[in-house]
Amino acid sequence: MTKSPLSPQTGIPAQEDGGATILEIGQQPEAWREVAGSTDAEAAAFLREIGARPNLRVILTGAGSSAFAGDIAAPALRRHLNRRVEAVPTTDIVASPLDFLERHTPTLLVSFGRSGNSPESVATTELADELVEDVWHLILTCDRNGRLGRAHSGRANSLVVYMPERTNDTGFAMTSSLTSMLLSCLLMLGPAEPGDVDALARAAQSVIELQPDIRTLAQSKKRRIVYLGSGALEGLAQESALKLLELTAGEVVTYFDSPLGFRHGPKSVLDFDTVVVVYVSTDPYTRRYDLDIIAEIRAQLGQDAVTVITTEPIPAELGPAVVLPGLAGLDDALVALPYLVFAQYLALFTSLAYAKAPDNPFPSGEVSRVVKGVTIYPMTVGR
Rank of each mutant, 00 (worst) to 15 (best):
W136G: 02
G11L: 04
T125W: 00
M188H: 09
F342S: 01
R298E: 06
D134M: 09
L348P: 01
G326I: 01
S180W: 01
T61W: 07
N360H: 12
G70A: 00
L187E: 02
G195Y: 08
P191S: 03
E296S: 12
L81V: 10
L108W: 10
G195F: 06
E102K: 08
A44T: 14
P338L: 11
E239G: 06
D198T: 14
A192V: 10
P54L: 04
V207K: 11
L98Q: 08
D99H: 04
L140V: 04
A44K: 07
I297G: 04
H104F: 11
Y162V: 14
F100I: 04
H264E: 04
S121R: 05
P89D: 06
H137Y: 13
T175Q: 01
S121E: 03
S96V: 08
E246T: 04
L318D: 05
T39W: 08
V275A: 02
G382F: 09
R48D: 09
R369N: 06
V367P: 04
E193K: 15
A237G: 10
E42F: 02
S121W: 00
I214V: 12
E239S: 05
P363R: 13
D359C: 07
E126Q: 15
I214W: 00
D40V: 13
A123S: 08
N82H: 12
F46C: 05
S281E: 03
T286A: 12
G64T: 12
